[in-house]
Nucleic acid binder design. Structure first.
Lengths: 254, 254
DNA sequence: CGTGTTTTTGACTTCAGTCAATTAAAGTGG
DNA sequence: CCACTTTAATTGACTGAAGTCAAAAACACG
């Protein structure tokens, strides 16, 4: 449970600060939320479709994914989450979960009682606003994914996804080499892009052959981000990142 | 502009009441929001990608769509909206619009100043909660669309979409014939499902031949909703409809 | 070092896309 | 209400991107 100088929830504060300003008291109130830390293995379920969650889960470290199963047993990964993300606020707010949330890697989580979270959101408008904005940004990402899966061919579709990951893993350095460790198998990439594992493999190979990415183990190395972004038709507007973050080095007017 | 017994915003009250309870004062406060009514022709833009909206638009009557353009000029329709929907709260809250919102049919709208809307959301928690839940439900729909476009074949994909429309247009009557007027051309259905117009045409024909739907003009008639839902792998959980609505006739325990 | 997963590759199939022409509907103005 | 124009729906013949099946090679790890 929570004790006063517990820093478990720090990633949440960090994340929300990128979305809206928070006073010191707001931040303290977040850190003081009751919670229970829990470590989970890769592939473990955080929430299952049909559950009525009593807690909402903060992803403290590692990666998680939202998954949906369709009739014939196929799976679609509908979003990926990183440290600091509230991974099932929606399920907690909406009652019954309409999709699964699973660990993608080994993760550390903090489970916060639903009521405590909701009370905080409504007693501290700045916190509520940040959480609301977070929901809206996630919606924006979902819309881009619909367009990506619906209207882009395999090559730009994968390129787009790799660009998005670069931003969300905070690995974009325009003009320099950027690289990150992609914690997904090709099968998971297939479930994310709506392709088959075989086709993902072939498409990655083409991206590699064209010099758009390099791979070693599961790391992705991008020598020329702009070129990959051009192929992937990627523009980061929809991520609604704070203006300062990782964008072109300089900006005269703060 | 708003006058006191103006009922223009009534559809918003009706919609929000399905999401969270609202006191009489809450409802009055919503109806009293300053706003400007505007009629728009089909295909007119409400917001364009890149805009920084100063107002947020309520769809009073008719249908609207969210669209994204991808690099090669193709279009993806990422969501459809009906009367009572706040059609660009996200754009207003997030600053710069990351997609277009367009009239799908002739529509009537009410433009509410961004500030007034935000103030109302934070001064009246019940209203804020309803708006937040609305954002979350829209996110849930977007996730289902990712799965639909990513992992279902043309036939179930279209069937699924037709089932969703039946629910959202409140036309579902289990056990009876249900029908609704679909305000979209086959080209727009193609942009919604990520298919080509030709393939949409052929797929509709198959649905028709298999007795799953009938068509006259642009009306869709579904004789056996359960059968269409089975083909489309459709389960309405993700719409998070209020328990009472249009579901199986009876429920013992309210 | 062996066992199970993941990646890679080849040969073949299929679902959906493309191109192009025809028919049907929906408007429009006289 | 009818010719005239425009937009939408339909159909056929052909192409191509991605899927399927199956096997081999490369890793990961206890």
């Amino acid at each position: 449970m929570a004790d006063h100088d517990d820093k478990t929830l720090q990633p949440l504060v960090r994340k929300l600060l990128t979305l809206a300003p928070l006073s010191d008291e707001d931040q303290a109130a977040i850190l003081a939320l009751p919670h229970k830390a829990r470590a989970l293995e890769a592939a473990a379920y955080i929430v299952r479709e049909g559950d009525t969650p009593t807690h909402c889960c903060l992803l403290v470290s590692g990666f998680a994914m939202r998954t949906k199963l369709v009739g014939d047993g196929e799976r679609q990964i509908v979003n990926i989450h990183v440290s600091g993300d509230m991974v099932d606020l929606q399920n907690a707010m909406l009652g019954v979960a309409d999709h699964n949330v699973q660990a993608l890697t080994k993760i550390n989580t903090a489970f916060i009682p639903r009521e405590a979270m909701v009370d905080l959101a409504f007693s501290r408008p700045s916190v509520g606003k940040a959480l609301w904005i977070d929901s809206l940004v996630e919606g924006a990402i979902q819309r881009e994914w619909v367009a990506n899966v619906g209207r882009r061919r395999a090559l730009p579709r994968l390129a787009h996804l790799l660009c998005e990951f670069a931003y969300r893993l905070d690995a974009v350095k325009i003009g320099e080499e950027c690289n990150y460790k992609l914690p997904m198998t090709q099968e998971q990439l297939a479930d994310t892009t709506g392709l088959t594992p075989v086709h993902v493999n072939r498409t990655l190979k083409v991206l590699d052959e064209q010099g758009l990415i390099r791979r070693s183990k599961r790391a992705v190395i991008i020598d020329d981000f702009k070129r990959l972004a051009a192929v992937g038709d990627f523009r980061p507007t929809y991520l609604h990142l704070p203006p300062a973050a990782s964008e072109p080095p300089r900006r005269e007017n703060a």
